[in-house]
Write a protein that binds this DNA or RNA. Structure first.
Length: 907
RNA sequence: GCAGAGGUAACGAAGCGGUCAAACGUGUAAGGCUUAGGACCUUAUGGCUUAGGCCUUCGAGGGUUCAAAUCCCUCCCUCUGCACCA
């Protein structure tokens, strides 16, 4: 068997592609275009197979479109905005051993690491270079002339400035304060990945209701201000420390000591703070500001002074904790019956029911009861007639009315807490900081959302299921804080204190690719808003622009809109939503993006592949050891958004099959037979495979397309040979089609196969996608070969049964009349499967009884008496070879001889 | 909490009203090839049968239909994403 020398083959074709500059695409009005991108990535380490998964998926589509005759642009930029690179550089500067080891493992020298320390750009440029060579190695068809680096390329920063001024002009920028999870020790926002504990916790807003006790204010914090009419008392905890805080407006608040520490991060700093003995308040009363009711202040050890203010309003009939304590206290102090203010029709005694069901033994049980009560009341509860102006409101809607009412009484404030405990990697407890003067992009804009969702409905989303998720993401979109204080990035043009953060400066940069190779020769100061208005928005100007700008406009107008953006699913709720919305906000409709391709994670042995898990393989390792074409198998590891499992073992099977095809091309001249039924079978099948693999390529379901274009295809070629096919023209045509169908997936080796058979143009460089030939379609021949296959399997079974080598095999084909009845029944089933109906139209005899025995197994495909005979006669010599026995083909009148299932006698 | 996806053989996974005992892959077993191992090839792998037959399954329960893994309802369970962070 001929050896598959992948190194040589790949080296050769890589060189040829490069010499012909096949991946460099320019505007060409005469040709239809296709523009595909994958999001930029951070060059902060070597590329690994996890990256390769997404990029190869995009590359396959790019090559597929090239073969369909399109002018394809696939550019790639890098991203250096934001924290990660700056963070790594800083860690190197601080001599962090772990960071240094990571760099060394990825091929950086001592010298390099010294350069990276404190200079994140050097680090990015270093890995940027490895990215280019790795992508080239694996055959990603990128036009590198258009590469640029987000927010490092000065010309690009001009583009971002234009984008932001444009957004502001259009009214999509606002300024305000914004709660973020914050580390008070490191004085920085605390993202999920910086946390030792509390991943996924976020700021939660509490309403503060100011109860009055004499001249003091007792600020009770609650998530349910709508229960204000049900308050029976206030809880404080005498085990905790409290303070008296005076604000500049003269108000004096009694709050826990812990609260005073959090206060400066969200409110104006207090004028004066002094100790306060909370026990002094015990037995006194406070006034509910909404209904002026006097409620007792009671000590309760369950109150947590490190959450909120340390003052809790008690609503016994609607909060299990309160209910439980209130009933206990009732035995000590004389208390009035608590008031029930929410009715749930289906559960008239909700509280008793919850207590009975979950218990009161410990905090956990009470928490479960609380969840149950809150949920039920929220969904089905109505505020009853004891709720003053709130009476009759469903709980779902009551909150905003309650807040308005509390505000009216000058008793409202608010405070943010983390939704659960957050601990920073540094060990400090996270809290919420209200960042002031933050700039936002108004993605919450209703009209923008509507326009975007309308558009997404029309987009080509692969797989289709992702569409609902994207629409949902847009629907739930809130304003996005677009700036930050540290790291790298483009300064906000009108407020230089802020840098534009990385998810906001990367929403329309795909447009920049269209002219990146031209604008890079311009001086930044030559680049103006007027110019971008002209190029991107077709805004006419009196000014006559120089040729290079006219050329940029031409490129932009030719390539835009983007036809396909390929990315992993974790970007759906942020980047993909921002990307589409910003296009809708800024560009005219004919420039909005047309297609998306979403994929899942790549997994290895059931685990997600990622650097932090240490289960990655670098691209150069895989390519050098297995070959680029083999490595590209990775793209067929899954069909849609499911996680994709990749297994190196698949590569062996792949290579084996490639060797089989390569060998066929070498011994092509030895096939010298006539055309027979087997040829008709293979040609018909080939059509079917073209049709199906094209469909799967189109929806980016590469696992399926590989099944058709590769595995099933080869199976059919093998069957053809097994059935006695040996016609050179057929094989040459079929293997050429094979090389074409598989070219997007395996560009190098298919080019080699095609080249061995047809000295002509490169598959990559002309309209080479194979056409379906109607004249080759022959369904009945395919069916009859299916019969042959099934019969061979039956013979095998029978030979096993008798457990000796057969001397003679008699194959009895059913008579012509049986075929006629069979086909007749098949025809009727298209109209009716009612056995009575069918019987009306066919003679009644033993054969028909058998045929109609099982309504589930009625004839389902057309067969042909003459063809069935010929199929067996033409494969006779092969069968003889297989079993080393005499083969007799004859017509049989026996009951067992069925159309599509010949009678078998084995002697 | 909100949203999305899903529960099919030992496992991964396809099928999405009749071609289904269930493609394809892995694992397992037997045989072939090989000095040997690996790789590769052939066959088997729900149960009962053993001349090509029958029976039972697709998270659980109910319903629609001549026909349901596939459509509808209820319940149980699993996974993924949720923003200032790339």
């Amino acid at each position: 068997m001929s050896k598959y020398e992948f190194e040589e083959i790949e080296k050769k074709w890589r060189r040829i592609y490069e010499e012909k500059k096949l991946y460099e695409a320019d505007a060409d009005e005469k040709r239809e275009k296709f523009f595909v991108t994958v999001p930029v990535m951070y060059p902060d380490g070597r590329l690994h197979t996890g990256h390769m998964y997404t990029w190869t998926r995009a590359d396959i589509f790019a090559r597929f479109q090239r073969m369909k005759g399109k002018n394809v642009l696939f550019p790639q930029g890098f991203h250096m905005t934001g924290g990660p690179m700056a963070g790594m550089s800083l860690r190197l500067k601080n001599g962090d051993e772990k960071a240094i080891k990571i760099m060394k493992d990825q091929g950086a020298s001592e010298e390099d690491i010294k350069r990276f320390a404190g200079n994140p750009l050097e680090l990015g440029l270093f890995f940027g270079k490895t990215y280019k060579s790795d992508f080239n190695l694996v055959g990603t068809s990128i036009d590198w002339r258009r590469n640029f680096i987000l927010s490092y390329t000065e010309q690009y920063s001009k583009f971002v400035e234009w984008q932001f001024r444009k957004l502001r002009e259009l009214g999509y920028i606002t300024q305000g304060s914004h709660p973020v999870v914050w580390c008070p020790r490191e004085n920085t926002s605390l993202g999920d990945h910086d946390r030792a504990e509390g991943e996924g916790e976020s700021p939660q807003e509490f309403t503060i209701i100011k109860f009055k006790a004499d001249n003091l204010i007792l600020p009770a914090a609650t998530l349910r201000p709508e229960t204000i009419y049900g308050v029976s008392n206030l809880w404080v905890n005498e085990n905790g420390q409290y303070k008296k805080v005076r604000f500049s407006n003269g108000e004096e608040w009694i709050v826990s000591k812990e609260f005073t520490e959090k206060l400066p991060f969200q409110k104006n700093v207090a004028e004066k703070i002094e100790d306060f003995n909370i026990a002094d308040l015990a037995g006194k009363t406070a006034v509910n500001p909404v209904n002026n009711e006097e409620v007792p202040i009671i000590n309760a050890e369950f109150v947590k002074t490190d959450r909120n203010t340390g003052i809790v309003m008690s609503v016994p009939m609607h909060a299990p904790f309160d209910y439980n304590y209130y009933n206990k206290k009732k035995t000590e102090i004389k208390l009035r019956e608590p008031r029930k203010i929410i009715d749930v029709k289906t559960n008239p005694n909700l509280m008793e029911e919850a207590i009975k069901r979950f218990g009161t033994a410990d905090e956990k049980e009470l928490e479960n009861a609380t969840k149950y009560v809150y949920k039920t009341e929220f969904n089905y509860g109505i505020l009853n007639e004891s709720n003053g102006p709130l009476s009759g409101k469903p709980v779902k809607e009551a909150k905003e009315y309650a807040i308005a009412l509390i505000k009216e009484k000058n008793a409202y404030d608010n405070f943010y807490e983390t939704s659960g405990e957050v601990i920073c990697r540094c060990g400090a407890k996270g809290l919420i900081k209200l960042v002031e003067n933050q700039w936002f992009i108004r993605y919450s804009d209703k009209q923008l959302k509507e326009k975007t969702i309308d558009w997404i409905q029309k987009m080509d989303v692969r797989p289709e299921e992702a569409k609902a998720q994207i629409i949902n993401a847009v629907y739930n979109m809130e304003d996005k804080a677009a700036t930050r204080n540290g790291g790298l990035g483009t300064p906000l043009p009108w407020d230089n204190n802020w840098l534009i953060e990385p998810l906001s400066d990367s929403t329309i940069y795909m447009a920049y690719y269209t002219f990146a190779h031209i604008i890079k020769d311009m001086k930044p100061e030559e680049i103006t808003d007027e110019m971008f208005d002209y190029i991107l928005l077709d805004k006419k100007s009196d000014k006559k622009f120089p040729d290079n700008i006219e050329k940029m406009k031409k490129e932009f107008e030719y390539w835009y809109p983007l036809d396909l953006r390929v990315t992993a699913k974790e970007l759906i709720t942020n980047h993909i939503a921002f990307f589409i919305m910003t296009h809708v906000a800024i560009f005219s409709k004919d420039k909005w993006p047309r297609g998306l391709g979403i994929n899942g994670w790549l997994t290895v042995n059931g685990k997600k592949m990622s650097k932090s898990k240490g289960n990655t393989m670098t691209i150069d390792y895989v390519v050098n050891n297995y070959g680029a074409d083999s490595a590209r198998l990775i793209a067929s590891a899954s069909n849609g958004m499911d996680d994709a499992a990749w297994d190196l073992n698949n590569i062996n099977g792949f290579k084996q099959k490639i060797e089989f095809i390569l060998e066929l091309t070498e011994i092509m001249d030895s096939f010298s037979g006539e055309r027979k039924l087997a040829d008709e079978f293979l040609l018909s099948k080939t059509n079917y495979l073209i049709e199906n693999s094209e469909k799967e390529y189109n929806s980016m379901k590469y696992k399926n397309s590989l099944n058709y274009s590769f595995f099933e295809f080869i199976e059919n070629i093998k069957n053809y040979i097994d059935y006695g096919g040996n016609n050179k023209d057929t094989l040459k045509y079929v293997i050429t089609v094979f090389s074409k169908l598989n070219h997007p997936l395996f560009p190098f080796v298919t080019e080699e196969i095609n080249n061995a058979l047809n000295k002509g143009e490169l598959l990559e460089s002309y309209q080479s996608w194979p056409e379906i030939k109607e004249e080759y379609k022959n369904e009945i021949v395919e069916n009859e070969f299916e019969v042959l296959k099934q019969t061979i399997s039956d013979i095998n079974n029978l030979v096993n049964l008798i457990n000796k080598d057969p001397k003679e095999i008699i194959i009895g084909i059913a008579g012509k009349e049986k075929f006629e009845i069979y086909n007749k029944v098949e025809e009727i089933t298209h109209r009716s499967r009612d056995l009575k109906e069918i019987r009306k139209e066919v003679p009644s005899n033993e054969f028909v009884n058998k045929l109609l025995k099982n309504p589930k197994r009625l004839p389902n495909k057309k067969l042909d008496y003459e063809l069935e005979k010929r199929v067996f006669i033409e494969s006779k010599s092969k069968l003889k070879e297989m079993y080393n026995a005499e083969i007799k083909i004859e017509e049989s009148n026996e009951d067992k001889a069925f159309p599509g299932k010949p009678m078998l006698i084995i002697k």
